[in-house]
């Protein structure tokens, strides 16, 4: 048990150091999200909470694609994944380490992206900050849970990023619906989320997302071993 925690920690710390040195992934994530926000802003007229919610979700999904792909490319470039696999019998540890790294990356990314979106669309989520954080955290976990597994799946494909984007988007759809209605609640200050949310309360939405996260982390953790065999 303590051995697993050691391995997870080592992988996590190594990935963070690696990213701090190159800064490549994070920079492209942030620039991509700013461009997305800016394009959406061109099409909108002033305060539009619906569009802001969409921008946030689109940015998170596209950035997670970059992040999850990158985190496995690092391992495959010099064959490091073989070193990891021949060192530890439990492949689940590698999954959890990578998952933690991806979630952390997305959380740091959110700290940059959400203020940018709020500035773009003249929004002040100050009153609902806690709800916003809960939703973003749950989205990050869910997207990375799926993305980490799929990142490992697409490693043997030549045109991996295009395939990865399709796979992540298809799997993350059920997460999008509650996440967007939650974000609408946050940005429209408590009112229910537009055409979405037939009377669901915020806690129901959060619960649904938490259930999605829990089940996908577990299932992906269980099947991860087969993707590297």
């Amino acid at each position: 048990m303590s051995n697993s925690i050691n391995i997870i920690k080592a992988i996590f710390v190594k990935d963070i150091i690696n990213e701090l040195r190159s800064k490549q992934t994070f920079a492209s994530m942030v620039v991509l999200s700013i461009i997305i926000a800016w394009i959406f802003r061109l099409a909108s007229s002033g305060v539009e909470s619906a569009m802001a919610a969409a921008v946030i979700m689109v940015s998170v999904v596209f950035s997670s694609i970059l992040c999850c792909e990158r985190s496995f490319v690092v391992e495959h470039d010099e064959g490091c994944i073989d070193g990891l696999l021949s060192a530890s019998a439990d492949r689940g540890n590698i999954y959890i380490g990578k998952l933690l790294f991806n979630v952390t990356m997305l959380c740091i990314f959110d700290c940059v992206m959400v203020p940018v979106v709020c500035v773009c669309f003249n929004l002040t989520p100050a009153g609902n900050l806690l709800k916003l954080i809960v939703i973003l955290l749950l989205v990050n976990i869910g997207v990375s849970a799926v993305g980490t597994l799929l990142g490992s799946i697409v490693m043997s494909i030549k045109s991996r990023s295009s395939v990865l984007s399709i796979l992540i988007m298809a799997l993350i759809m059920p997460m999008m619906i509650p996440a967007i209605s939650g974000l609408l609640m946050v940005f429209s200050a408590g009112a229910d989320g537009g055409m979405f949310s037939a009377g669901q309360s915020f806690s129901e939405i959060a619960g649904m997302m938490a259930a999605y996260d829990a089940i996908f982390v577990t299932v992906c953790w269980l099947v991860f071993g087969f993707t590297v065999d």
Partner: peptide
């Protein structure tokens, strides 16, 4: 994992 997704599709669509 695609099949695991299916029940969530129906649950989340309830919103």
């Amino acid at each position: 994992i695609a099949f695991v997704d299916v029940p969530f599709v129906y649950i989340s669509a309830r919103l």
